[in-house]
Amino acid sequence: MISRADVDHVARLARLTLSDAEAERMREQLAAILAYINKLRELDVEGVEPTSHAVPLVNVFREDEVQPSLPREAMIANAPEPAGELFRVPRIIED
């Protein structure tokens, strides 16, 4: 059963600020969805290979040939806070 502490932990991992009410509602909804998802436990998957891609492909490469980069202005044009030729971010506190 997903607890409120789990919700808070996951919200932190996912970088989402949730209000108290949101977190509680989230807990209820996730609990309902997880209860539904848990029906997968009914199935025997012993020895079954996982599928990560529906269409099996292997060894897809590109050659090591330089393609033009995009102009800096084009790359920075969408930045919420450009700082000349760089992107500015607020004070970093390690966690």
Partner: peptide, 16 residues
């Protein structure tokens, strides 16, 4: 909020 799209100001990076 770093490279494109919305940014809501915050005390520090994680908060932002």
């Amino acid at each position: 909020g770093v490279k494109y799209g919305l940014r809501v100001p915050g005390r520090d990076l994680i908060d932002m």
